[in-house]
Design a protein around this nucleic acid. Sequence first.
DNA 1: GAAAATTATTAAGAAGTCATTAAGTTTAAA
DNA 2: TTTAAACTTAATGACTTCTTAATAATTTTC
Lengths: 220, 220
Amino acid sequence: MIDILIAEDNKEICGLITDFLRAENYVVSSADTGEKALSLYEKYGARLVLLDINLPDTDGFSICEKLRRNDNVPIIIITARTDRDDKLNGILLGADDYIEKPFDIEILIAKIKGIFKRRLARDIISDGDILLNISDGTVTKNGIQTELSAKEFELLKILMQNKGQTLTKEFLFNRIWGSDSESEIQTLTVHIKYLREKIENDPKAPQKIITVWGKGYRWA
Amino acid sequence: MIDILIAEDNKEICGLITDFLRAENYVVSSADTGEKALSLYEKYGARLVLLDINLPDTDGFSICEKLRRNDNVPIIIITARTDRDDKLNGILLGADDYIEKPFDIEILIAKIKGIFKRRLARDIISDGDILLNISDGTVTKNGIQTELSAKEFELLKILMQNKGQTLTKEFLFNRIWGSDSESEIQTLTVHIKYLREKIENDPKAPQKIITVWGKGYRWA
DNA sequence: GAAAATTATTAAGAAGTCATTAAGTTTAAA
DNA sequence: TTTAAACTTAATGACTTCTTAATAATTTTC
């Protein structure tokens, strides 16, 4: 997996960024066209993409789209001040960050570090002895990895993401099974049971997944 | 094996670098033409090449190519600032590092050390009783060499490089077989089986290559 | 406290996914 | 060309997850 994928046609800028990022121990790859960048991404994946909006072949906008489609990889857009138009403003709104040429390399690195940090905070939810890692789909209890099934993981994720809020059974069911599912809502309570078995200290007296009578469940 | 092979026609610069590197206990050899450098490389091999892009005979570019073709030896390119053109920029992008004349010898040594460090960390992965050496393609278990097939080695490499992360079967398959392969994804599970036979202590109860249900596999 | 409503538990079976095996095919080496 | 190793395929078996349904337990309402 590449840490940072740079899509930039100006070799000098690209080399400069690469040098600095490698000095920070990131694994860096670069491409001078959008097509090459996409193919690198598909081959190796990347944790962050640094994208010049003015690439020679494809326009940066469609690359942005394609990158976002599958995963939700963070993108920092490199732009020239003169580029500014409505279309660009739209893209920047969706981007995780952007930087204008000419830029200070130190600022760029600070931005990258900031994104990694924020991502990490968003993708890892910790509460009490439970730690849930959304990016790699793992859950640990007291530091010990706990294997959850797909449904159990989804359930735990939604509950933890909405800590303190009571979520109705219908809401939970629709979020996990989809509103057009043919399964019975009863299935949900069975999965709650299974999940409790795995994460509660005493599944008979749940302290984490609280039953709210007549409504649903709540992450304490 | 030579530690550092210098290709530089300026005797003064060459001697200076040699002295400093030898003081750091590196085994150093040098050549004042591209041809000589290549022949030294073919005879003895080298862990790193310091290459002046402006050599009298061959141009540095084709030497670069030839060096990269077989092995993936790291190259630091020495260049004069005035050299800068597109062709050079292209080469620099692929080089592991470069330095501009006149340069501070201390910076050069720092770069060399950095490359060795990164290479080493990247090329030798050790985890538990398994040691995987990417540069020479060997694997040992408890110090005993284990013969893996090409596919098995690739599989192990990707898994170990992404320790703790669950990799989907599709991702693994694309990385090893390529996205345009005509093989079935089913093949992957058979290779997982073979690999487990070779590296797990109890292949019936895998502790290293963990199956993540509905997703893929994870190196524990 | 009894009836009604809701949730918990259990177990069995269906569906889905992975592991294993073996035979056939391809590739590389001798 | 022969031989061996590596790879692929397909079929079968084993296991995990999911769903259902029946029953038990709990809470609320009357």
